[in-house]
Simulated assay, not measured.
Amino acid sequence: MGMREAAPGPQRRATRADVARRAGVSDAVVTYTLNGGAPVARATAERVLQAVADLGYQPNQAARALKSGSAHTLGLILPDGPDPVFENPFFTEFANAVEAAARRRGYALYMTPTPPDQTSVVTRLNDFATRQVDGVLVVPGEGSLDPDVLDRIGIPWLQLNTVHEQVGVDSIGADLLGGAVLATEHLIAHGHRQVAFVGEIDEREPRYRGWLATCERLGVERGPALPSEYNRQSGYAAGLEIAAMDRPPAAVFAASDLIALGVLRALHERGVSVPDDVALVSFDGSWEAEYSWPALTSVRQPIEEMAEASVAAILDRTAPDERRHRMFRGELVLRASCGVHRPA
């Protein structure tokens, strides 16, 4: 009985020295070619890159990070709670835009849903710092983060989805008040003399204030104002209330797409037609708004622009105290729910 051949072991990973030998150059020239540390003649660089392809060489990112102090990665902390963050299409789309913006800069992105309290955020920042992540983008939960506490960790960070400017915080956010004004003006411009609101009923909430101020400024009846959390379930409950009214409002501004989706379902179940009986406009402009029925007219946040600005704010920061609040204005996207653009 013949001897069986030994099973092949794991193939050894190609090293930088292997690439250098195959290309006929020094280890340093391989490094310069791949990292851009110094100019390399085109013919030499082509030989190095061909050797990399032939050998399947992959640089050891951990070793590079230890040597350079940079892992060429960014972190993204998203608030995790009773409503899973990635069930919200806005956050899913925004995280995807941030990842694409980081990749264009040659950076990878780590994403982690985290309880929104400051202790949990600090723990995640410390985790990222030990991995030599170059900066962290933080979407806070309810309440503000203490910038002094986060700064002591020693890693650049930026706060996203921020409504109000906060001293000592570098931040980016959408113009919520301006978006509410835009949505409410649109409904009034098309002849509605009463516009209802569904969302957070709070004088500090920009979308509520924008709706309220616009109704008063243009002399239309405001209300009713129905409280809702920023999810489908609360929007559905508010929609049932609207459908049960003796005289439902002819127009509604919903403070988010998720709220509006809940309102849509409730009205549909109760036989209230959108837009024939109730015109509906929302805020966020997520992909889900485009594929609801009827499709939602919505104020779209400039997600791609905000993502690019977020990554640039972290990577191009030249001084630790170079901090400011950047606000981005949305765009009203017209679809069928407001009664202006009807489905074909």
Rank of each mutant, 00 (worst) to 15 (best):
L267P: 07
D284Q: 09
W293I: 03
A238M: 02
A319F: 10
E305N: 14
S310A: 15
F253G: 07
D277E: 08
V278D: 04
V278S: 02
G285R: 04
V299D: 15
Q301H: 12
E241K: 02
L280C: 14
A319K: 15
S286T: 12
S234Q: 01
D316N: 15
P302L: 07
G285I: 03
R300P: 07
D246K: 12
A309E: 08
S282L: 14
A238V: 07
W293G: 01
V252K: 02
A266C: 03
V311Q: 15
G262C: 04
Q301A: 09
A266H: 02
H268K: 11
A254V: 12
G262W: 00
G239N: 00
A279Y: 05
M245D: 14
V299K: 15
A255I: 07
A255Q: 06
S292M: 01
R265A: 04
P248G: 13
A251G: 08
P294E: 09
E288V: 12
P249L: 11
I259M: 00
W293Q: 01
L315E: 10
L261Y: 02
A237P: 00
S298K: 05
L267T: 08
S286K: 06
F283A: 13
P275I: 12
I303K: 14
R265E: 10
V278P: 05
D316M: 11
A295W: 07
A319Y: 11
V281D: 00
R265M: 02
